[in-house]
Measured scan of single mutants.
Amino acid sequence: EVTIKANLIFANGSTQTAEFKGTFEKATSEAYAYADTSKKDNGEYTVDVADKGYTLNIKFAG
Protein backbone atom coordinates (compact mmCIF):
# COMPACT_ATOMS: atom_id res chain seq x y z
CA GLU A 1 0.00 0.00 0.00
CA VAL A 2 1.19 3.48 -0.88
CA THR A 3 -0.04 6.99 -0.12
CA ILE A 4 -0.44 9.55 -2.89
CA LYS A 5 -0.56 13.14 -1.65
CA ALA A 6 -2.55 15.62 -3.73
CA ASN A 7 -1.97 19.33 -3.18
CA LEU A 8 -4.90 21.20 -4.69
CA ILE A 9 -4.08 24.82 -5.51
CA PHE A 10 -7.07 26.98 -6.38
CA ALA A 11 -7.14 30.14 -8.51
CA ASN A 12 -7.96 32.30 -5.46
CA GLY A 13 -4.74 31.14 -3.75
CA SER A 14 -6.32 28.75 -1.27
CA THR A 15 -4.98 25.23 -0.96
CA GLN A 16 -6.22 21.84 0.15
CA THR A 17 -4.36 18.60 0.71
CA ALA A 18 -5.84 15.15 0.23
CA GLU A 19 -4.29 11.70 0.61
CA PHE A 20 -5.24 8.58 -1.28
CA LYS A 21 -4.15 5.10 -0.21
CA GLY A 22 -4.00 1.78 -2.01
CA THR A 23 -1.88 0.39 -4.79
CA PHE A 24 0.02 3.05 -6.70
CA GLU A 25 -2.38 2.74 -9.63
CA LYS A 26 -5.55 2.83 -7.50
CA ALA A 27 -4.43 5.76 -5.34
CA THR A 28 -3.30 7.76 -8.38
CA SER A 29 -6.57 7.04 -10.16
CA GLU A 30 -8.56 8.21 -7.13
CA ALA A 31 -6.53 11.43 -6.93
CA TYR A 32 -7.25 12.25 -10.58
CA ALA A 33 -10.94 11.35 -10.11
CA TYR A 34 -11.07 13.75 -7.16
CA ALA A 35 -9.53 16.50 -9.29
CA ASP A 36 -12.07 15.77 -12.03
CA THR A 37 -14.99 16.24 -9.61
CA SER A 38 -13.44 19.50 -8.35
CA LYS A 39 -13.06 20.72 -11.95
CA LYS A 40 -16.78 21.50 -12.18
CA ASP A 41 -16.45 24.28 -9.58
CA ASN A 42 -12.81 25.27 -10.06
CA GLY A 43 -12.10 25.07 -13.80
CA GLU A 44 -9.56 23.09 -15.75
CA TYR A 45 -6.42 21.91 -14.00
CA THR A 46 -2.81 21.05 -14.65
CA VAL A 47 -0.77 18.53 -12.67
CA ASP A 48 2.86 18.79 -11.65
CA VAL A 49 4.13 15.36 -10.64
CA ALA A 50 6.75 15.34 -7.87
CA ASP A 51 8.42 12.81 -5.56
CA LYS A 52 8.47 10.08 -8.24
CA GLY A 53 4.69 10.31 -8.60
CA TYR A 54 3.84 10.15 -4.91
CA THR A 55 2.95 13.86 -4.80
CA LEU A 56 0.61 15.53 -7.27
CA ASN A 57 0.40 19.33 -7.33
CA ILE A 58 -2.95 20.04 -8.96
CA LYS A 59 -3.44 23.67 -9.99
CA PHE A 60 -6.91 24.87 -11.00
CA ALA A 61 -7.32 27.68 -13.53
CA GLY A 62 -10.46 29.10 -11.93
Rank of each mutant, 00 (worst) to 15 (best):
T55I: 09
I58R: 00
D51V: 02
S14W: 13
T55G: 02
E25Y: 08
T37K: 15
T17C: 12
K21C: 10
F10E: 01
N42Y: 15
D36H: 07
E30P: 01
A27D: 01
Y34T: 04
A61K: 13
F10C: 05
A33M: 10
K52G: 15
F60L: 02
Y34K: 04
G22K: 01
A11S: 11
S14H: 13
K40F: 11
V47G: 01
N57F: 11
Y34R: 04
G43M: 05
K39I: 12
A33G: 07
D36Q: 09
F20Y: 05
K26T: 12
K21W: 10
V47N: 01
Q16V: 14
V49D: 03
T28Y: 13
E30Y: 08
Y34V: 05
N57D: 05
V2K: 05
I4Y: 01
E19Q: 10
D41S: 11
Q16G: 07
T28E: 05
I4R: 00
T15N: 07
A50E: 12
A6E: 01
S14L: 13
A50N: 07
Y45N: 01
A6C: 15
K26W: 12
D48L: 12
G22R: 00
A18V: 15
A61H: 14
Y54R: 07
Y45S: 02
S14K: 14
S14A: 13
A18K: 15
F20D: 00
K59C: 11
F10K: 03
T23A: 07
K40M: 12
D36A: 09
G43T: 04
T3C: 12
A18R: 15
E25R: 07
K59H: 13
G53I: 02
E1K: 09
T23M: 06
E25W: 09
K52S: 14
T3Y: 06
A35M: 07
N42I: 05
V2S: 05
T3E: 04
E25H: 09
A35E: 01
N42F: 14
I4V: 10
T46V: 11
K59S: 11
K26A: 12
A33E: 10
F24T: 04
F10I: 02
A61R: 12
D41P: 05
K21T: 14
N12G: 07
I4S: 00
G62K: 08
A61D: 11
G62N: 09
A31L: 05
Q16T: 12
D41K: 12
G22S: 04
Y32A: 03
S14I: 13
F10V: 02
V2C: 11
Y34S: 03
N12D: 14
G53A: 03
K5Y: 10
F20Q: 00
A50L: 14
Y45E: 01
I9P: 01
S14T: 14
V49M: 08
G62M: 09
L8H: 01
G53W: 03
G13L: 05
A18N: 08
E19Y: 15
N12Y: 06
A27F: 02
K21D: 04
E1R: 10
K59V: 13
L8M: 09
N57L: 09
S38T: 11
N42V: 05
L56M: 06
A50D: 10
L56F: 05
A50T: 13
G13T: 04
S38H: 15
Q16P: 01
V47W: 04
D41R: 10
E19W: 15
D48H: 12
K26V: 11
D36E: 14
V49H: 07
A18F: 15
F60P: 00
T46D: 06
V49L: 09
T37E: 15
I9Q: 08
N7F: 12
K39M: 11
F24N: 03
I9K: 07
Q16S: 11
Y45H: 02
S29Q: 15
Y54G: 04
G53H: 02
T46A: 07
